[in-house]
Simulated scan of single mutants.
Amino acid sequence: MLQPALGCRGRAGPAGMSRHDFAGCGALALWAFLGVLARLAAGIPPLQMTAMGMAVGGLAALLVVAARGRLGLLRQGGLAWAHGVGGLFGYHALYFAALALAPAVEANLLNYLWPLLIVLLSAPLLGMALGAARLVGVMLGFAGCALLVGGGAGFPAGAMPGFLCAAAGALVWALYSVTARRMAAVPTEAVAGFCLGAALLAGAAHLLFEPTVWPDLRQAGAVLLMGLGPLGAAFLLWDIGMKRGDPRLLGTLAYAVPIASTLLLLAAGEGQAGWRVLAAALLVAGGGLLAATGGRGRRAAPAVSS
């Protein structure tokens, strides 16, 4: 599998974090660049962008898997393929639909319910205790996220379908992430196939619902980087983190993604910094620290084969 290259099972780092937790954090770091890359690729329809990015990520991962002589690991059961392809495609399809049907700020706020849902669903689905410290950390993180993207936002009635898509997308990604731990028998290499399957679905949906736009050099470069990072390697790292790390911790630290993404956009000249960004960053950092240090006990969930 791919995960031994990232760390040894059970070895802990700072604040009790294992290397598998750090793999999940790597995915979060890559996702922080998605906003900047999407701005660079602006003009490409969202489903087309998803198909192109996931195709790049899937093909790159497939080359790595083939070089390691492990193509046979892509032979998984129907449950594994439904989980992988359905999660990757379903979340992004719902997210892009939300942005098309509702105001972006409000839709994005609802979409970022998924970190909160990951932490909360870890208890009933994985039998992992939350504890007061983790719950406070979750709420601090959510408060920071809401402060950053929800200030002054309205909720017009006509945008309700988009809001429902955003909430559904958050639930899909949270369920995909948490249940990945119960499918630990599915090797991370299989994610390469899942990305390609999701790319095919996104491509088919694009041909049905969107016009095709041929990217220029800037757009093509942005999609290439997107596929190698946020829509490629990030999925592999997230798979490792969810299956062998602590989903409660990663779900809380995920609140850093909108903060980091906003700071990168500001550095690229998009928008202006203010007290809201600084206050949100403090809330997210405090919530993440509390989640990392509060509650050491873990109860491992049994792996479920496909």
Rank of each mutant, 00 (worst) to 15 (best):
T188Y: 02
A280S: 15
L164A: 13
M160I: 11
R244E: 15
V186N: 06
A198T: 14
V223Y: 03
A185F: 04
G269F: 09
A267Y: 05
L237I: 10
P161Y: 01
A192S: 13
R181F: 03
P230I: 08
V186A: 08
P156L: 00
G152S: 10
V191M: 15
Q272M: 10
A190D: 14
L253S: 03
G203C: 05
D216S: 13
V213W: 06
A168V: 00
I259A: 05
P247M: 04
T188R: 02
V191L: 07
F163W: 00
F209M: 13
A143C: 08
A166G: 05
A260T: 06
L265H: 01
A279W: 04
M160F: 11
I240H: 02
P161R: 03
G150I: 09
V223C: 06
A267P: 09
A222W: 03
E189W: 01
P215I: 14
M226Y: 02
H206E: 08
W173M: 04
G152I: 14
A174W: 07
V178C: 11
G154R: 05
R218K: 12
L148M: 12
A280K: 04
L164K: 00
L148Q: 08
V213T: 14
A159F: 10
P230H: 14
G245H: 05
L249H: 01
E189K: 00
L148T: 08
M242A: 10
A180Q: 05
L164N: 02
G203P: 04
A199G: 10
I240R: 06
A268D: 07
A273Y: 04
R276T: 02
L147S: 06
P161W: 00
V213P: 07
W238Y: 12
D216C: 13
I240V: 15
A199Y: 01
W173A: 01
G154C: 04
L175A: 06
P211E: 14
L231C: 10
Y255G: 02
G150P: 12
V186E: 04
K243N: 12
L278N: 01
G221E: 11
R276G: 00
E210P: 14
Y176F: 15
A205V: 13
V277P: 02
A281W: 02
A273L: 15
F209I: 11
H206G: 14
W238L: 12
F155L: 11
L282R: 10
G227I: 06
